[in-house]
Design a protein around this nucleic acid. Structure first.
Lengths: 199, 199
DNA sequence: TTGAAATTTGAACAGTGTTCATTATTTTTG
DNA sequence: CAAAAATAATGAACACTGTTCAAATTTCAA
């Protein structure tokens, strides 16, 4: 009787779609049990039959948003020449996506994950996301002896932490103030991290 | 009639102290208008006679916590030799403070500031805090020609963003997992940023 | 002491999440 | 097909949240 499972998955999908819609339009602050349920066409109580939490539901959107971000990064970095150029394009497109959707940055990096979310390991999925986006280019650079594996590893984490902090302060503390200044700071930071590829 | 002003300031102090107490013990999630007021010994409605918001009140704690953090950094870095050693000690003590009080990191970097908080410019106060802590050491290093002013400026921002991101991911996403791993990552990152002081 | 001004307060309202007994629907069985 | 059993959907209820405002209280000067 797999109809049961199919129907159940469909209904879960309605709730997830409703949540995604709210997240992208009104943002995380407008996500509420009653809000989601209304958009999904069910009572708020029904949500609890399919999900432990609204938070639980919210974190199920992470994968979808990652795919969307991946697509955005892919198109924005398609023209760039392989290697460092492409890596730079990927990093900038990554920043661009979160600047466009601050609510998704909030969801990825600021929202506390509830206990059940630890089960499907949402946290490593998020922290490993940038690595996955850059994976191919780092491989390429290591293969071409532009950078050593060890140096690449260091640069990867420095970029992850640096870009996370940059987005955090830009989105939450208006530092730098204004998108042009943000872009300039981002480029300067990426420059400094990609220098001395063999160090 | 300056008694008026004095008494008013005293009462404001009761509310601020209550808020600080809650922030350090239960954390930001437990900060509520009724919660603060009860600890302060007043009705929840009274809070609105002295502050626009509970958020407003919360951000008034920033300065006090910065002073506390400064003191912690000072004692923890007192023994270090001037220059790079001391700079490292400052950075590690800075991290240490926020790891000890994740609620204060939340307040400094994650909590959205309301409109009134933009008036006393809380945001630059927060983003400039690390710079202020390190100011003397950077001056020393520049004076000793260990690093150029331009290179120092770049390293300052890279450290600010990197450490912010590191704390963000450690506190919110358990990455790295465990304090020893966190310390190792922090040291590696600081190493990479302080290398090539003349570049 | 009295009256006016200032301060403190709780009621009220609109939100929030969550649980659970009741209702409605669907599925299975006779 | 009809009755019974299983499943799913629901809204009432409770405990919170922030915020406003008229009423109660306190303060203080005349």
């Amino acid at each position: 009787m797999k109809n049961k499972a199919l129907q159940e998955q469909r209904i879960r999908g309605y709730f997830i779609d409703a949540t995604k819609e709210i997240l992208k339009s009104e943002g995380l602050k407008s996500v509420s049990v009653r809000n989601i349920a209304e958009k999904a066409g069910y009572s708020f109580a029904t949500l609890y039959n399919y999900f432990k939490d609204a938070k639980d539901l919210v974190f199920l959107c992470v994968q979808d948003f990652q795919e969307e971000c991946s697509a955005h990064v892919a198109t924005r970095s398609a023209k760039a020449a392989r290697g460092e150029k492409k890596l730079r394009a990927i990093l900038l497109a990554y920043l661009e996506y979160f600047v466009q959707y601050p609510g998704i940055f909030e969801l990825f990096f600021m929202e506390k994950l509830s206990d059940l979310n630890k089960q499907p390991d949402t946290a490593p999925m998020i922290t490993g996301f940038l690595d996955k986006l850059c994976e191919e280019e780092w491989k390429y650079l290591v293969a071409n002896k532009t950078v050593t594996t060890a140096a690449a590893a260091n640069k990867k984490v420095a970029l992850l932490y640096g870009l996370s902090g940059l987005l955090l302060l830009y989105i939450n503390r208006q530092t730098p103030s204004g998108y042009p200044a943000f872009l300039k700071t981002a480029n300067t930071f990426i420059d400094s991290q990609l220098k001395d590829m063999t160090t």
